Computed example of a mutant assay.
Amino acid sequence: MKRISDARTVAVVAAAAALWLLVSLIARGRQDLLGVAMALLCVLLAVISGVAVTAARQQDTAAAPVPPQPLGPADPAPPGVDADTLETLGDRDAVRAMRARYRRDDDQ
């Protein structure tokens, strides 16, 4: 959890610094070497902020637990019978026979 707050902190600090640099560039209207350096630093800080936000989002999704899939009688099709097989068969009697065959194989 420590890294999530670190990435968010970096994003906020970098965005605030980029905004401050942008406002100062607009207000002063510098058109010399220092102005170019400040503009490049502003772009760099904006990129750092974007990367930090992306890192925080990825850590949030990675930290969220994935709910387990229910197994057992609630499962509509036995293992080995996928949607393509059922579509190919099409006949209900053939599907019942295949399910019965899989049940017999599982019982043995």
Results as ranks from 00 to 15, higher is better:
57 R>L: 09
57 R>S: 10
57 R>W: 07
58 Q>F: 10
58 Q>P: 00
59 Q>G: 02
62 A>K: 03
62 A>R: 03
62 A>I: 04
63 A>M: 03
64 A>Y: 05
64 A>F: 01
66 V>W: 07
66 V>M: 11
67 P>G: 00
67 P>D: 00
68 P>A: 14
68 P>G: 10
68 P>C: 08
68 P>S: 12
69 Q>Y: 04
70 P>S: 03
70 P>R: 08
71 L>M: 10
71 L>Y: 03
72 G>V: 03
72 G>R: 00
73 P>D: 08
74 A>P: 06
76 P>L: 02
77 A>C: 06
77 A>Q: 06
77 A>K: 03
78 P>E: 06
78 P>S: 13
78 P>M: 10
79 P>D: 15
81 V>A: 04
81 V>H: 01
82 D>P: 00
82 D>K: 08
83 A>R: 10
83 A>G: 02
84 D>K: 07
84 D>C: 05
84 D>H: 06
85 T>R: 11
87 E>M: 02
88 T>K: 15
89 L>I: 12
89 L>P: 02
91 D>S: 08
92 R>N: 09
92 R>Q: 10
93 D>C: 10
94 A>G: 07
95 V>T: 04
96 R>V: 11
96 R>C: 13
97 A>H: 01
97 A>Q: 07
98 M>I: 13
100 A>K: 12
101 R>A: 15
101 R>H: 13
101 R>C: 08
102 Y>P: 01
102 Y>H: 14
103 R>K: 13
103 R>F: 07
103 R>H: 13
103 R>V: 06
104 R>A: 15
104 R>L: 15
104 R>C: 10
105 D>A: 15
106 D>L: 14
107 D>M: 12
107 D>V: 09
